[in-house]
Design a protein around this nucleic acid. Structure first.
Lengths: 242, 242
DNA sequence: TCAAAAGTGTTTGCGATACACCCATGA
DNA sequence: TCATGGGTGTATCGCAAACACTTTTGA
C-alpha cells in the first residue's frame, strides 16, 4: 500500500537498525580489514565487522562515523572517506531478531593498531585474503565493499583516501595494484593521474625516499576533483571465458 | 559500541522501515516517473514516490517488488529491473516519526497507465522534467535515481531494461539519449553495442517498422551480459568550467 | 658499481569520432 | 520522388599500452 495509513509506532514489528562497517586499509603492501572478535552467541569466537545500533537522534551516516571513531580509537575521523554501500535486510540474517543493517565502506590511509576505545572486545587488523568465514552475512558485506571500492577506483579519485595527506605517485599506484590485485605500468599510470585535472596537486618543495633506496619521489596532495573521466580501467583479466 | 549487548526489542526507539520507489519509464521519447498524490498531511496534495512499509517477514527487496506490483497493476514484475539505490535515514525526514527508507530504482519498458490495484489514491506517470517539488526528501531520491541510472548506462547493459522483450537498436539508442539528454552518433552506437558480446542478440527473422516510415529495423533481445566493458561513455558536456 | 625506485621519451595499435553513402519503406 | 529511419563503409584523431632509456639515491 502506498498510502501510509496508521502511524502507530508499535503497529508493526519493530526493526532494529544498525550499521556495519567494512574498514579497509593498506599495511605493508596488503589490504587489511578491521574486525572484532565476537564474545557471545551467536557466532561466538568468530570475527565480525564492527558496527552497532543507530541511535534515535542519529542518521546512519552519523552512527557509522561514531562507530568508526570508537573502533579505531582515532581522534579525528571527520576527514576519512565513508561511503554507504547498501542495506541488508533479509529476515533471517540475525537469528535473534529483525535487524536491518546499513553497510558502509571506510577507507583509512595508514593503519594504527586500534586502541579499543574503552571497550572490552578488541578490534584488530586482519589481512583481507586471510579472512576466515565471518559472523552473520558479513562475508558478503565485505566482498561487496571490496567490489565497490575496486569499481570506484576506476571512475573516481577515491584512491587518495587510502593515502596519507602527502604521498608519492608510487604509493598511489600501490593502492590500485593492491585493491585490484594486478600490476600497472608506471609511466602510463603517472601520465594518466597527472593528466586528470584536480586528481592530485604537487607539494612545492616536497620529496621523500620511499623504500630506503632509490631516487626520492615528489610529493602530492589530493586535489579537489572527485570524478575521474575518462576512467582508469583495470586491465582485463587474462583467462576470459566467453 | 560494537558489542551488541541486550537484545531487548523495545530497548531502543523503534524504527519504521519503508521502501521508496523511483519507477522510471520512457513514454513518447521522454523520461517519466511514477508518482502518487498524497491525500493527507504532511505534504497533502503534493506528489510523492510510491512506497510503503517493509513487512515483518520481508526483505526490503521483496517489499519493493510487492509495492511495484501494487502500484503499477502489472501482473508479472518478476523480470523487471529493481536496483537498490541507498538508504535515507536522516532523523527529520518524516515529521511524524522515525522512518528509515531504503530507496530503489525500477525500470519499466513500456508505460501502461497504472491501474491502481484496488487502492483509492491513484498513481500516475508524470514527465521527469516537469516534476514539481515532491513530498519529504523524494526530490533528492529521484535525482539520485536519475544519476545512478545515467551512470549505470555507461558501464552496464542496463539499457535493455527500458525496452520491451524485442527491440530495435534505434529504440535502445533512444534510451541512452533520453536518460542522458544528449544525442549519439547512430553508426558508432550500433557498432559499440554489437561489438559487446552478450549485450544484445539478434532475433532471427525479426523486423519491425518503427515510426511508420523508413526501413524496417532488425529486432534484438537482451543478452546475458551485465557489464559493459569498455564502457560507453556519455559525450562530455560542452560548457566545461575548469 | 650495482640495485632499486623515480621519472621521461617514443613507437605502435586499437578504438572512437565524424562523416559520407546506400537501402527500404510510406506518403 | 521525397522524407524518414535503418544500415554500411571509411578516414582521421587521440589515447593508451608497451617498452627503452635516463636520473638519483643507498648499499
Amino acid at each position: 500500500m502506498f498510502v501510509v495509513r496508521g502511524y502507530d509506532k508499535y503497529a508493526h514489528e519493530p526493526f532494529a537498525v544498525t550499521v556495519d562497517l567494512a574498514v579497509l586499509t593498506l599495511r605493508g603492501g596488503g589490504l587489511h580489514v578491521l574486525l572484532v572478535e565476537r564474545g557471545q552467541e551467536p557466532y561466538a569466537g568468530r570475527w565480525a565487522l564492527p558496527g552497532g545500533f543507530v541511535l534515535p537522534d542519529e542518521s546512519a551516516e552519523t552512527a557509522a562515523r561514531r562507530e568508526l571513531a570508537e573502533e579505531t580509537g582515532l581522534k579525528d575521523v571527520s576527514g576519512l572517506h565513508l561511503e554507504q554501500l547498501r542495506t541488508y535486510s533479509e529476515p533471517g540474517r540475525d537469528p535473534r531478531m529483525r535487524v536491518v543493517s546499513v553497510a558502509f565502506a571506510a577507507l583509512l590511509p595508514d593503519a594504527p593498531e586500534p586502541t579499543g576505545g574503552g571497550d572490552a572486545a578488541q578490534a584488530r587488523w586482519l589481512p583481507y585474503d586471510a579472512v576466515e568465514p565471518l559472523a552473520f552475512d558479513h562475508d558478503r558485506i565485505l566482498a561487496d565493499a571490496h567490489d565497490r571500492v575496486g569499481a570506484d577506483l576506476e571512475s573516481t579519485c577515491l584512491a587518495t583516501a587510502f593515502c596519507p595527506p602527502e604521498f608519492t605517485l608510487g604509493e598511489l599506484q600501490q593502492v590500485y595494484e593492491t585493491v585490484w590485485g594486478t600490476g600497472l605500468d608506471r609511466p602510463n599510470f603517472r601520465r594518466k593521474v597527472l593528466a586528470t585535472p584536480g586528481f592530485v596537486e604537487p607539494v612545492p618543495g616536497g620529496a621523500r625516499l620511499t623504500g630506503g633506496r632509490g631516487k626520492p619521489a615528489a610529493l602530492y596532495r589530493a586535489g579537489a576533483a572527485t570524478a575521474l573521466r575518462p576512467p582508469l580501467l583495470r586491465p582485463p583479466r587474462e583467462g576470459r571465458s566467453a
